[in-house]
Amino acid sequence: MNLNGVEVQDTFAEAFGMRGTRLIITGENLKWAYHGATALTGFATSVIACGVEAGIERKLGPAETPDGRPGASVLMFATSSKELGVQVERRVGQTILTCPTASCFGGLSEGDPIALGKNLRYFGDGWQASKVVGGRRFWRVPVMDGEFVCEETTRMVRAVGGGNFLILTTDSAAALAAAEAAIEAMRKVPNVIMPFPGGVVRSGSKVGSRYKTLPASTNDAFCPTLRGVVNTELPPEAGCCLEIVIDGLTADDIRVAMRVGMQAVIARGRAAGVVALSAGNYGGKLGQFHFHLRAILQEGDTPDAGAPTGGAA
């Protein structure tokens, strides 16, 4: 399949089942809501060493948040419900409780409840108080700028992590430009995040390594500087490769995001240095979700594109 001079390889991305949740962070203004949300989702690129993969889904207007203040919607994904619970409490406790004027709410209406402010409330040392509003319990913890308001629980759902595609270009500048265009388009898709820096990752990995202690190592087949000494998968004209990894609340959300992203890359075309689109997989043996690039591009717009799952607030 060749679109606008870009070869779409006949391959698929391999993704895994994860547990995910959405949090709503609000603040006195968007600036402080984002300070909180940015810290909350910091160092959360990969579950390999960060515990969770997290990112800001989108900004929220005052009409979309429980307390009528501007905010940000954040998605967090972990490999197990236990780890997600640990990470949510740890991160909210260190980044939202500490952030001036910020409040934290659950952002999904379905799923199993996990603790959000349920244990963080004890920071109030006996001065904490709760209010039940519309069947949801909110904790008020006195802090030095007033009160930290935090919903008691957030909902956790079964989600999908690790959807991806690779952008193969002639050089680094073309790869960055294509990846940025893809991310800009994909950020408009609800229910997904791209957890790596700027949404893009350069260190795609393969399973295993020559070292006993290292279960994953650099994806040498796509490393341009090794093309002469390894079994390379780079076309002769490709000199750079970047990957975009997507976590989503459902497989359909990832499919939509992948299509939107790939279309943005294809729109730039061969003239802008884009050579091919590929994907990272492990031979189909590890992940239960397979996203075939060509099939996704041929599907066209699905009707559920643009429908957020579970509501924002």
Binding site: T26, P66, D67, G68, R69, T101, S103, K131, V133, G134, F138, R140, G146, E147, V149
Partner: peptide, 10 residues
């Protein structure tokens, strides 16, 4: 207090 506004909105 944010909780007051949350109540008002509800």
């Amino acid at each position: 207090l944010p909780i007051v506004h949350l109540l008002f909105r509800s």
